[in-house]
Write a protein that binds this DNA or RNA. Structure first.
Length: 270
DNA sequence: ATTGACTCCTGATGGC
DNA sequence: TGCCATCAGGAGTCAA
């Protein structure tokens, strides 16, 4: 799925088509997602879209009164259709605009979400307690260092925790830890301020480059035009188990950490 | 408070 | 071709 770069790419793709446009209707044809899609989403009908934003991996459509919250889950994608064709399998909902265009959500695995938010979106309980944006000035080595003191959780799980920092998923967690030379299983509380500085720089760098490449397409991610992302060719360790480390030439290892596949170089990462 | 395991679901892949 | 097991990019929830 979509991690931060893929959600950001989706946002940039849909924004020009939605901003200042008026929604005609919201059609839900398969409400079974992570949570059942509430009937309230139809309140978006007739409203103008005043702004779009991303918070972590959530997409926010701000309307005149209230807003829509969308999460792509593991396999979700949003497409802009200028001339809507007939819906396909796993097309869960459409946001139809007055101008005839349509924003269509497809999600085979149904881990995505589509929710109505009354009032201020940022104070919604799913967004309220999220950590800082990794590309913002709030995300610093000092912050990570402070938050991690006395924490025994593996650093990989720590940076994948949205309450610590948002947007770092399984791919970019492995990638940034490799770049920073930190073993993914190292206890978060046993990493120095200096090494956190390297990690923060690595996370910023990898996410920034991935956004520039339109995200990573491993299996089914597509952007708002249905095109894949091209960051997969820049991956250093992810899905490279047994292949040579680009830094030392030794074999890249795969190990399950916190129920997720992790990739690292045991020689380069301590 | 922190942690680790479990859960939701479909689809692709590989072994037999 | 079919059947079965395994594995996927997330993250909320629960129990200890």
């Amino acid at each position: 799925m979509p991690e931060l770069p893929e959600v950001e790419t989706t946002l940039r793709g849909i924004e020009p088509h939605l901003l200042h446009q008026r929604i005609a209707t919201v059609t839900v044809r398969e409400p079974r997602l992570r949570w059942p899609v509430p009937a309230e989403v139809s309140r978006a009908g007739g409203q103008q879209c005043l702004g779009l934003a991303r918070r972590g991996k959530y997409l926010l459509l701000k309307l005149e009164k209230g807003g829509l919250l969308i999460h792509l889950g593991m396999s979700g994608s949003l497409r802009v259709l200028e001339q809507p064709e007939s819906p396909q399998k796993h097309d869960h909902f459409d946001i139809e605009l007055k101008n005839g265009a349509c924003l269509r959500f497809n999600d085979p695995r149904r881990f995505g979400a589509f929710l109505w938010v009354e009032g201020d979106m940022e104070s919604h309980e799913l967004l309220r307690d999220l950590g800082p944006e990794p590309l913002s000035a709030d995300f610093t080595a000092q912050y990570l260092y402070q938050r991690s003191r006395n924490r025994r959780v593996a650093i990989k799980n720590f940076i994948m925790n949205g309450h610590v920092v948002v947007g770092v998923g399984n791919i970019y967690a492995s990638e940034s830890l490799f770049m920073a030379g930190i073993h993914p299983q190292r206890a978060a509380g046993r990493i120095s301020l200096q090494r956190y500085a390297g990690l923060v720089a690595a996370i910023r760098d990898v996410l920034g480059r991935a956004i520039r490449q339109g995200g990573t397409t491993l299996r089914d991610y597509v952007n708002s035009k249905g095109a894949p992302g091209y960051f997969a060719q820049e991956l250093l360790v992810y899905e490279r188990a047994g292949k040579s480390c680009f830094q030392c030439g030794g074999p890249v290892r795969q190990k399950v950490i916190g129920q997720r596949s992790s990739y690292y170089c045991p020689a380069c990462q301590k």
